[in-house]
Structure formats: structure tokens, C-alpha cells
Design a protein around this nucleic acid. Structure first.
Lengths: 153, 153
DNA sequence: TTTCTTATTGCAAAATATTTGCAGTAAGCT
DNA sequence: AGCTTACTGCAAATATTTTGCAATAAGAAA
């Protein structure tokens, strides 16, 4: 697995300035098991900041800065949107385990119940679309819905 | 193609009360070529209302009512979310031409350019998921992103 | 038809996520 | 060390969607 140092170096090469905001977003997402919202990244950084064992003391980072850096890092293909859930976007680092081994759920339009679908069935689709369009590093955000067995009439 | 009268009759059988709000939402979406946002449905009804040729004069319907009815009709599987675009959800009637013949686009994370992918490649995926999960009337909301040829480094 | 129940509506206001303006700060080149 | 300008923090704006509540009306019952 790529080290955080190497990852930050790769980021440095692609951005105008490697600032504390970008470092924070990348470091938090790097340590994450799952995709995160801007707010979650912010809270996670706050926690890490207040953690006494962190030396030197980490700087404050505004939620707005998280938003702006997510947007910028997404344009560079360093992070990507994974899903739009409960009204907000969840992000993760592209190419990481979190992104490559993501899965999807299906939710019932009627009762809201969520069911895991298992390993993502769309990698093939991404490839087909890459061939058709010439786009690279293709990602998808997908949400399946339907009527669960109990809610089916 | 199903007539609007028949469609409204089907809706009547599934809702507690067939109100002006539900009729409006269903009628507007029935006449639509593409999926619509709550706001677009509202505006479209406003236009129709002010159209002199509409007799009898149509009643006012609040945007909030559109939202509430979309939610309710979605739970019943009568309308479904098609995509989350520019911050808002687009809906259409399930089973209509608009829903069955939808297609997807891919947008470039860097420059924002959109490219049509052509006919939806996910009908098969919907079927697979139906078999795996037991859910019925499966829909998907999907957005593909990537780096377009010009933005690829 | 009239009455009755309660689902639905309109209006105002709240909640939520995200974006924008701007003055001050700092990354990294020279 | 100085300089340019990308970036940040703060406050406020936007935009979409949700919620509370009193008034209305759909459709069953009388």
C-alpha cells in the first residue's frame, strides 16, 4: 500500500501549493475505512487536533476549507465522490482500497430499508464507458432503489 | 401508450385521496419529455394555469405540495428519482417512455464537460440485483465521472 | 345530500448542505 | 528576505428540502 508520505508527494506535484488544508483532507481520507462527508472530515480533524498525543499541535481548519479542497482535489482526480447519502456527498481517495472495493446498497422506496448488494457490479460498465467515450479514470455514483419483498404489493 | 385518464385511475387506487396536488404532479410528468425537478413541475403548472385556453381555471398549487406529493408517489412506486443534478432531484413517472428509454452522461471532473453515453447500460444490472435481493421494480440513479480526453494528463 | 373523519394543503419558518465575498495569511519561487 | 498570488477564515448568502400548524377538502358514512 502506498505510504502517506508518497501520496502527499504525488499530491504536491499536482497542486499549486500543498497547504495544511490539502494535507488534512488527504491525511484524514487516507486513514479512513469508508468514504466521508466534508463535515465528517472536519470533525475527524478536530478530534485528531484535540488528541493530546498529536505533536506538534495541529492547526485549525475551517469547514469551508475542507469543501474547497475537496472540490479542487476532485478536479485533479485525487479524490472522488462515492455517494450522495442523506443529503450530502461522501468522498474518498481514488485508487485506494476504499474506492476499489466499494459496494452498493439497494434501498426500499417504501420503508427505507437498506440491503447490501455485495461487490460492485459496475467495474465492467466503467470499462465499457471508457471505451465508448475516451474518458479515463472513470468512477460512478450509483444508488439502486426498489420495493423490498415486504413492501411489494 | 397509457392514457392520462387510465393512469390517474391507477393512481387513485393506490393513494388515500386523489387530490389536486397529486393530479397536477402526475399530469405534468405525464406530459413531460424528460425528468423534472420539483421546481420545474411547479413552474410548469404555473404556466399551464396562466394559459388562457385552460378551462376550467386550474387551482394554485404550492411548491411544498409538489415536494410532498413527489415523496408520497415515490413510495408507491408511481414516480422515481432519475438523477441528482445541479443540487436537485429530477423525477419521472415509472414505466413511461421517459423512464424506460433514459440514458446517462459522463461528466469530466476537471472541465465539467458532459458527454452522452447512449442507451442505458444498466438494465441488465437492475435484473441481476433483483435476483440477488428479491427487490422489485428496481431503478438506479447513476452518474459517471472521469477525465475527458482533453483534461487527461 | 349532509355529516364526519382525517389526509392534504398553504403559508411561514426552519433546517441543511454548500457556495461566495473579502481581507488577511502563507507557500514556494526568485 | 522579498514577492506573488493561492489559499484560508469568517461571515453571510444561496438553494433545496423539510417541518409546524391551522385551515381545507376528499371520500366514506349516515
Amino acid at each position: 500500500m502506498e505510504s502517506i508520505e508518497h501520496l502527499l508527494e504525488r499530491v504536491r506535484e499536482r497542486v499549486p501549493r500543498l497547504t495544511k488544508g490539502k494535507k488534512a483532507v488527504v491525511e484524514i481520507l487516507f486513514a479512513a475505512e469508508h468514504s466521508m462527508t466534508a463535515q465528517e472530515i472536519y470533525s475527524s480533524w478536530e478530534e485528531r487536533k484535540h488528541d493530546q498525543s498529536e505533536l506538534p499541535h495541529l492547526q485549525d481548519i475551517d469547514l469551508v476549507t475542507i469543501y474547497r479542497n475537496l472540490e479542487q482535489l476532485e478536479k485533479l482526480g485525487i479524490v472522488c465522490k462515492m455517494e450522495h447519502s442523506h443529503g450530502s456527498w461522501r468522498y474518498c481517495l481514488t485508487g485506494t482500497h476504499t474506492e476499489r472495493h466499494h459496494s452498493h446498497t439497494i434501498s426500499c422506496v417504501s420503508c427505507g430499508k437498506q440491503l447490501a448488494i455485495g461487490a460492485c457490479v459496475l467495474s465492467e460498465v466503467d470499462k465499457i464507458i471508457a471505451e465508448r467515450t475516451g474518458f479515463q479514470n472513470i468512477h460512478h455514483v450509483v444508488q439502486f432503489t426498489g420495493a423490498c419483498p415486504e413492501c411489494t404489493v
